[in-house]
Protein backbone atom coordinates (compact mmCIF):
# COMPACT_ATOMS: atom_id res chain seq x y z
CA UNK A 1 0.00 0.00 0.00
CA UNK A 2 1.06 3.58 -0.72
CA UNK A 3 -0.04 6.74 1.09
CA UNK A 4 0.15 9.88 -1.02
CA UNK A 5 -0.07 13.20 0.83
CA UNK A 6 -0.53 16.12 -1.58
CA UNK A 7 0.16 19.65 -0.26
CA UNK A 8 -2.13 21.51 -2.70
CA UNK A 9 -5.40 20.92 -4.52
CA UNK A 10 -3.67 20.86 -7.91
CA UNK A 11 -1.35 18.14 -6.69
CA UNK A 12 -4.29 16.21 -5.18
CA UNK A 13 -6.23 16.29 -8.46
CA UNK A 14 -3.14 15.27 -10.41
CA UNK A 15 -2.59 12.30 -8.09
CA UNK A 16 -6.25 11.26 -8.28
CA UNK A 17 -6.01 11.32 -12.10
CA UNK A 18 -2.88 9.15 -11.97
CA UNK A 19 -4.40 6.80 -9.36
CA UNK A 20 -8.15 6.65 -10.01
CA UNK A 21 -8.47 3.64 -7.66
CA UNK A 22 -6.90 5.51 -4.73
CA UNK A 23 -9.07 5.92 -1.63
CA UNK A 24 -9.25 9.54 -0.52
CA UNK A 25 -9.07 9.93 3.26
CA UNK A 26 -10.03 13.05 5.23
CA UNK A 27 -11.24 12.44 8.80
CA UNK A 28 -10.88 8.70 8.35
CA UNK A 29 -13.98 7.98 10.44
CA UNK A 30 -15.44 5.82 7.66
CA UNK A 31 -12.23 4.77 5.89
CA UNK A 32 -10.32 3.64 8.99
CA UNK A 33 -13.15 1.41 10.17
CA UNK A 34 -13.00 -0.32 6.77
CA UNK A 35 -9.19 -0.64 6.96
CA UNK A 36 -9.10 -1.81 10.59
CA UNK A 37 -11.65 -4.53 9.85
CA UNK A 38 -10.03 -5.49 6.56
CA UNK A 39 -13.12 -4.62 4.53
CA UNK A 40 -10.89 -3.27 1.82
CA UNK A 41 -7.21 -3.00 1.02
CA UNK A 42 -6.63 -0.21 -1.50
CA UNK A 43 -3.30 -0.12 -3.33
CA UNK A 44 -3.17 3.64 -2.74
CA UNK A 45 -4.55 6.05 -0.14
CA UNK A 46 -4.82 9.76 -0.89
CA UNK A 47 -4.47 11.70 2.38
CA UNK A 48 -6.21 15.06 1.91
CA UNK A 49 -5.49 16.45 5.39
CA UNK A 50 -2.69 18.73 4.18
CA UNK A 51 -4.69 20.34 1.35
CA UNK A 52 -5.47 23.77 2.76
CA UNK A 53 -7.92 24.60 -0.06
CA UNK A 54 -10.31 21.95 1.31
CA UNK A 55 -10.35 23.22 4.90
CA UNK A 56 -12.85 25.54 6.57
CA UNK A 57 -15.50 27.63 4.80
CA UNK A 58 -15.74 31.05 3.21
CA UNK A 59 -18.25 33.48 1.68
CA UNK A 60 -18.64 33.91 -2.08
CA UNK A 61 -21.11 36.31 -3.72
CA UNK A 62 -24.40 35.45 -2.04
CA UNK A 63 -23.36 31.92 -1.24
CA UNK A 64 -21.10 29.99 1.12
CA UNK A 65 -18.44 27.51 0.12
CA UNK A 66 -18.06 24.80 2.71
CA UNK A 67 -14.75 23.03 2.10
CA UNK A 68 -15.05 19.26 1.81
CA UNK A 69 -12.70 19.06 4.80
CA UNK A 70 -15.02 21.12 7.04
CA UNK A 71 -15.55 19.16 10.27
CA UNK A 72 -18.73 18.76 12.26
CA UNK A 73 -17.00 20.42 15.23
CA UNK A 74 -16.28 23.51 13.12
CA UNK A 75 -19.93 23.66 12.01
CA UNK A 76 -21.26 23.06 15.52
CA UNK A 77 -19.16 25.64 17.34
CA UNK A 78 -18.65 28.44 14.82
CA UNK A 79 -20.65 31.12 13.05
CA UNK A 80 -22.34 28.52 10.82
CA UNK A 81 -24.51 27.69 13.82
CA UNK A 82 -26.64 30.74 13.04
CA UNK A 83 -26.24 30.66 9.24
CA UNK A 84 -27.10 26.98 8.67
CA UNK A 85 -28.88 26.06 11.91
CA UNK A 86 -30.28 22.67 10.81
CA UNK A 87 -26.85 21.56 9.60
CA UNK A 88 -25.36 22.69 12.91
CA UNK A 89 -28.01 20.77 14.90
CA UNK A 90 -27.34 17.70 12.76
CA UNK A 91 -23.59 18.06 13.26
CA UNK A 92 -24.03 18.07 17.02
CA UNK A 93 -25.75 14.66 16.82
CA UNK A 94 -22.92 12.99 14.89
CA UNK A 95 -21.04 10.32 16.84
CA UNK A 96 -19.12 11.84 19.73
CA UNK A 97 -16.79 14.82 20.21
CA UNK A 98 -13.91 12.65 18.96
CA UNK A 99 -15.82 11.81 15.75
CA UNK A 100 -16.97 15.41 15.25
CA UNK A 101 -13.40 16.71 15.56
CA UNK A 102 -12.33 14.53 12.60
CA UNK A 103 -15.40 13.69 10.51
CA UNK A 104 -16.04 15.96 7.53
CA UNK A 105 -18.98 16.83 5.30
CA UNK A 106 -16.97 15.78 2.23
CA UNK A 107 -16.53 12.33 3.74
CA UNK A 108 -20.23 12.15 4.61
CA UNK A 109 -21.22 13.05 1.04
CA UNK A 110 -18.76 10.63 -0.56
CA UNK A 111 -19.94 7.80 1.71
CA UNK A 112 -23.49 8.58 0.46
CA UNK A 113 -25.14 6.57 3.23
CA UNK A 114 -28.92 6.95 3.54
CA UNK A 115 -28.18 7.67 7.23
CA UNK A 116 -25.66 10.46 6.51
CA UNK A 117 -26.69 13.24 8.89
CA UNK A 118 -25.33 16.11 6.79
CA UNK A 119 -27.49 15.24 3.79
CA UNK A 120 -31.06 16.24 4.82
CA UNK A 121 -30.10 19.68 6.24
CA UNK A 122 -28.02 20.44 3.13
CA UNK A 123 -30.75 19.27 0.74
CA UNK A 124 -33.42 21.58 2.21
CA UNK A 125 -30.96 24.43 1.54
CA UNK A 126 -30.50 23.39 -2.13
CA UNK A 127 -26.82 22.59 -1.64
CA UNK A 128 -24.67 21.91 -4.68
CA UNK A 129 -21.67 19.56 -4.59
CA UNK A 130 -18.53 20.82 -6.28
CA UNK A 131 -16.66 17.96 -7.96
CA UNK A 132 -13.23 18.66 -9.40
CA UNK A 133 -10.69 16.82 -11.52
CA UNK A 134 -7.81 17.75 -13.80
CA UNK A 135 -10.51 17.96 -16.51
CA UNK A 136 -12.28 20.78 -14.70
CA UNK A 137 -14.90 21.51 -12.08
CA UNK A 138 -18.63 20.77 -12.17
CA UNK A 139 -21.43 21.60 -9.76
CA UNK A 140 -23.88 18.79 -9.08
CA UNK A 141 -27.08 19.47 -7.10
CA UNK A 142 -27.04 17.30 -3.97
CA UNK A 143 -30.26 15.54 -5.03
CA UNK A 144 -28.51 14.34 -8.19
CA UNK A 145 -25.15 13.71 -6.54
CA UNK A 146 -26.37 10.75 -4.47
CA UNK A 147 -27.61 8.14 -6.94
CA UNK A 148 -28.45 5.29 -4.57
CA UNK A 149 -27.42 3.54 -1.34
CA UNK A 150 -23.70 4.35 -0.98
CA UNK A 151 -23.54 5.34 -4.66
CA UNK A 152 -22.89 8.77 -6.13
CA UNK A 153 -22.11 10.67 -9.29
CA UNK A 154 -18.40 11.15 -8.55
CA UNK A 155 -16.14 10.05 -11.43
CA UNK A 156 -13.03 7.97 -10.66
CA UNK A 157 -10.69 10.91 -11.19
CA UNK A 158 -12.79 13.40 -9.22
CA UNK A 159 -12.64 14.73 -5.68
CA UNK A 160 -15.29 16.61 -3.76
CA UNK A 161 -13.80 20.04 -3.20
CA UNK A 162 -16.71 21.91 -1.60
CA UNK A 163 -20.42 22.20 -0.96
CA UNK A 164 -21.90 25.46 -2.20
CA UNK A 165 -25.02 26.76 -0.48
CA UNK A 166 -26.92 30.04 -0.39
CA UNK A 167 -28.41 30.09 3.12
CA UNK A 168 -32.18 30.64 2.90
CA UNK A 169 -32.49 32.27 6.29
CA UNK A 170 -35.67 30.20 6.77
CA UNK A 171 -36.54 28.91 10.24
CA UNK A 172 -35.27 25.33 10.27
CA UNK A 173 -34.53 22.39 12.51
CA UNK A 174 -33.10 18.86 12.55
CA UNK A 175 -34.32 15.85 14.51
CA UNK A 176 -32.94 12.35 14.85
CA UNK A 177 -34.23 9.19 16.47
CA UNK A 178 -31.93 6.62 18.04
CA UNK A 179 -31.41 4.65 21.24
CA UNK A 180 -28.99 7.20 22.74
CA UNK A 181 -28.28 10.91 22.52
CA UNK A 182 -24.77 10.20 21.21
CA UNK A 183 -23.07 7.67 18.97
CA UNK A 184 -26.21 6.88 17.04
CA UNK A 185 -26.77 5.99 13.41
CA UNK A 186 -30.19 7.49 12.75
CA UNK A 187 -33.14 5.12 12.96
CA UNK A 188 -34.72 8.00 11.14
CA UNK A 189 -33.77 11.68 10.85
CA UNK A 190 -35.49 14.77 9.54
CA UNK A 191 -34.65 18.32 8.49
CA UNK A 192 -37.51 20.80 8.10
CA UNK A 193 -37.60 24.48 7.13
CA UNK A 194 -40.35 27.07 6.78
CA UNK A 195 -39.43 29.90 4.42
CA UNK A 196 -41.42 30.85 1.33
CA UNK A 197 -42.57 27.24 1.37
CA UNK A 198 -42.33 24.24 3.69
CA UNK A 199 -39.40 21.92 2.98
CA UNK A 200 -38.37 18.59 4.42
CA UNK A 201 -35.80 15.90 3.80
CA UNK A 202 -35.15 12.75 5.82
CA UNK A 203 -32.43 10.19 6.52
CA UNK A 204 -32.56 6.39 6.88
CA UNK A 205 -35.91 6.32 5.10
CA UNK A 206 -35.03 6.24 1.38
CA UNK A 207 -32.12 5.02 -0.78
CA UNK A 208 -31.23 8.59 -1.77
CA UNK A 209 -32.13 12.00 -0.33
CA UNK A 210 -35.64 13.22 -1.18
CA UNK A 211 -36.89 16.80 -0.98
CA UNK A 212 -40.55 17.25 0.00
CA UNK A 213 -42.14 20.68 -0.41
CA UNK A 214 -45.57 22.25 0.17
CA UNK A 215 -47.06 25.76 0.34
CA UNK A 216 -47.08 27.19 3.87
CA UNK A 217 -50.89 27.14 3.79
CA UNK A 218 -50.80 23.33 3.62
CA UNK A 219 -48.94 22.80 6.89
CA UNK A 220 -51.72 20.62 8.32
CA UNK A 221 -51.22 17.96 5.66
CA UNK A 222 -47.40 18.21 5.58
CA UNK A 223 -46.61 15.52 8.19
CA UNK A 224 -48.59 12.90 6.25
CA UNK A 225 -47.07 14.12 2.98
CA UNK A 226 -43.52 13.74 4.35
CA UNK A 227 -44.22 10.27 5.77
CA UNK A 228 -45.83 9.29 2.46
CA UNK A 229 -42.70 10.27 0.52
CA UNK A 230 -40.51 7.90 2.56
CA UNK A 231 -39.59 4.44 1.25
CA UNK A 232 -37.80 2.89 4.23
CA UNK A 233 -36.90 -0.76 4.76
CA UNK A 234 -36.97 -3.11 7.76
CA UNK A 235 -33.46 -3.50 9.19
CA UNK A 236 -31.60 -4.06 12.45
CA UNK A 237 -32.24 -0.51 13.63
CA UNK A 238 -35.99 -0.31 13.00
CA UNK A 239 -38.94 -1.38 10.93
CA UNK A 240 -40.42 0.26 7.88
CA UNK A 241 -43.69 0.90 9.71
CA UNK A 242 -41.96 2.50 12.71
CA UNK A 243 -39.93 4.81 10.48
CA UNK A 244 -42.97 5.99 8.54
CA UNK A 245 -44.88 6.62 11.77
CA UNK A 246 -41.91 8.39 13.37
CA UNK A 247 -41.47 10.68 10.37
CA UNK A 248 -45.06 11.87 10.64
CA UNK A 249 -44.68 12.57 14.37
CA UNK A 250 -41.30 14.28 13.91
CA UNK A 251 -42.61 16.48 11.08
CA UNK A 252 -45.50 17.63 13.28
CA UNK A 253 -43.06 18.51 16.09
CA UNK A 254 -40.63 20.17 13.70
CA UNK A 255 -43.41 22.35 12.28
CA UNK A 256 -44.34 23.45 15.79
CA UNK A 257 -40.76 24.65 16.16
CA UNK A 258 -40.25 26.33 12.79
CA UNK A 259 -43.71 27.93 12.54
CA UNK A 260 -43.64 29.20 16.13
Amino acid sequence: MDVLTPRSLDEALQLKAEHPDAWPIQGGTDVMVALNFDRGRPATMLNLNEVQELRGWWRGDGSLRLGSGLTYAEIEHGELRTVLPALAEASRTVGSPQIRNRGTIGGNLATSSPAGDALPPLLIEDAVVECASVRGTREVPLGDFVTGVKRNALAADELITAVVVAPSGAAQTFMKIGPRNAMVIAVVSLAVSAGDELRASFGSASPKPVLVTAPRAEAAGFPAQVAGAATPIDDVRGTRAYRVHALEVLTRRALERVLA
Binding site: V3, T5, G28, V31, M32, N36, M45, N47, N101, R102
Partner: peptide
Protein backbone atom coordinates in the same frame (compact mmCIF):
# COMPACT_ATOMS: atom_id res chain seq x y z
CA UNK B 1 -9.63 12.24 18.47
CA UNK B 2 -9.78 8.47 18.39
CA UNK B 3 -6.25 7.33 17.54
CA UNK B 4 -7.71 4.17 15.97
CA UNK B 5 -9.37 6.31 13.27
CA UNK B 6 -6.28 8.34 12.34
CA UNK B 7 -4.02 6.83 9.70
CA UNK B 8 -0.51 6.85 11.19
CA UNK B 9 0.68 8.58 8.01
CA UNK B 10 -1.79 11.42 8.69
Amino acid sequence: VCACLVLAAQ
